[in-house]
Design a protein around this nucleic acid. Sequence first.
DNA 1: TTGAAAGCGCTAACAT
DNA 2: ATGTTAGCGCTTTCAA
Lengths: 343, 343
Amino acid sequence: MSDVNAPATIADVAKKAGVSTATVSRVINQNAPVAAATAARVWAAIDALNYHPSAAARGLASRKTGVIGLLADDISTPFFVPILRGIETAARAAGYGLLINATPGVVSDGPGFRRVMGPHNTDGMLVFAASLDDEDLADLHGRGFPLVLLHRAPPPGLDIPYVTFENKSGARALVDHLIEVHSYQRIAFLRGPENHEDSYWRELGYRASLDAHDIPFDPALVATGGFSQTQARDAVRHWLNEGVVMDAIFAGDDEAATGAIIAIQEAGKRVPEDIAVVGFDDVHLSHPWMPPLTTVRAPVEEAGREAARQLIRLIQTRKPEPLIRLSTELIIRRSCGCPYEQR
Amino acid sequence: MSDVNAPATIADVAKKAGVSTATVSRVINQNAPVAAATAARVWAAIDALNYHPSAAARGLASRKTGVIGLLADDISTPFFVPILRGIETAARAAGYGLLINATPGVVSDGPGFRRVMGPHNTDGMLVFAASLDDEDLADLHGRGFPLVLLHRAPPPGLDIPYVTFENKSGARALVDHLIEVHSYQRIAFLRGPENHEDSYWRELGYRASLDAHDIPFDPALVATGGFSQTQARDAVRHWLNEGVVMDAIFAGDDEAATGAIIAIQEAGKRVPEDIAVVGFDDVHLSHPWMPPLTTVRAPVEEAGREAARQLIRLIQTRKPEPLIRLSTELIIRRSCGCPYEQR
DNA sequence: TTGAAAGCGCTAACAT
DNA sequence: ATGTTAGCGCTTTCAA
């Protein structure tokens, strides 16, 4: 008698049910016809032995891991959390495991040969923003490894599917509101990080709105906020010190909006009475010292869900949608100057 | 010539380096003496072929997955996010992958035999709060599967290691402050979920403080807030409707505190002027309509880190620490009635 | 210090 | 509808 404590194997189940291991495999995977009576005996044996197939053995034999990977740089930002939840939900619904890694880059550790995540332990990967550089991306994609990008466009020439928001129309609606409802004329813009997909399209929306209302574009009213509270704060401080005059600031995202508000308040001015501030994403940033933020709601959780679904479809069918663009919605609160009832 | 696109295997590396696969394995795992010159040739071959060992094959042969699992019920609460970050950091630092699953329960899916996570695909699991019932916990632990509990004590009789906070002394300090600094006498308490470890000890701290100050314990001033905004809101509404008089509410946790504040404000009263409210955890909940919250800081990220470390130690040595209790710190802001400067 | 070879537990041809 | 069997790519004795 062998090790009593070792977990049951498929051979144990086969023996107990009086069938071959192949039949047990068929029952489990439901990928070939099995007589109902046989299947019932197999299930009974599985139950009796409390059998759970070894993921390693399955993976080795089938060349599939049943796991998708998620690469991100910071897993705990207000923006990322709902995405993660969306991804987890979709992965679980499809029966996939989710392996997460917050290292920037599919990084070598030690001797430089062991990727923390990649084709050797996942069936495909979700890559968030800049967590993987173009070279690695190209390498992996070139080998036919399924990849879906989130919050980032693929490098030129690579047709890697990605999920994004309707940034341009969202920004356009937001700036339209500032101009049409509040009659602001001097509207500043804090752009996001360089080469950032979202950032690029939001700026286009901003400029389109200006154009449509015959307000000339003024380069002095554009600076880099980097989707970062501190960077945005510094940029606005600088404007204020320089005596730049403005009615409103479109901060690029909600994080940057909080930074802008801090700088304005430091200068002894009020939001929105002296300068209005609006954000983008609606990630529910709020602080006692800031007015409820007018922003654009991006369906962040849905983005995570869609990305995971796309990846799984890509893994299973090798036929991705080229691009998923999720719609956005204007959320009017008080920081633009509108009245707003709390809660 | 075989499939050119298939990833390199250990045999390819062995051939290229002119050694046996056993030697390559030794080089990779550094678990047996290998001549320096041989090792160098092997590394060169690994590099040249861009070789990455198959996780499945390794797992099958070594009976180790190199992965730890995390079971939680909701991954996106303000309380959970820092924990997740701590876990991820520690896992990565130790070279382990992190598989996450937010299903309540190591749940059967479909035919009832396939655990989403367990001994078949992880080396051990972190179990958060009530994400796994006592029976499954006992079963897994009984089979010798490494488990560490977070934010929950083990069922009676099972010596499963767990990580927790100094809840009692934290609550004691908080209530002491309410009594000694603000001279409140009628201090209500919203306890957490039934049978919840943290909840139990926080109540003990509350009662200890009352005792120490010769304030009689009044059962009418205790209700269940369930660590939930809505539950706490309803409980406080009920008190207020009944005309229960109180100086302050210790809400059990920060979520419940926000619910308490909502109910108080709805009743046309002010926090802290009419009724003070304090929380626990310091998860940075804040809203424009609530004063900065006086609370107790629990080192949440550290808890995640420690739990993951413990689990890995348990996996590797089979010798866990029985219990990790992390210290807490009183955070005075404005909701208790103290003056507080913002930002 | 190195090599040969026997598994690890499963899947997937191929038979029947 | 079911069984036989050859791998999948590693690790790990056991020999040399």
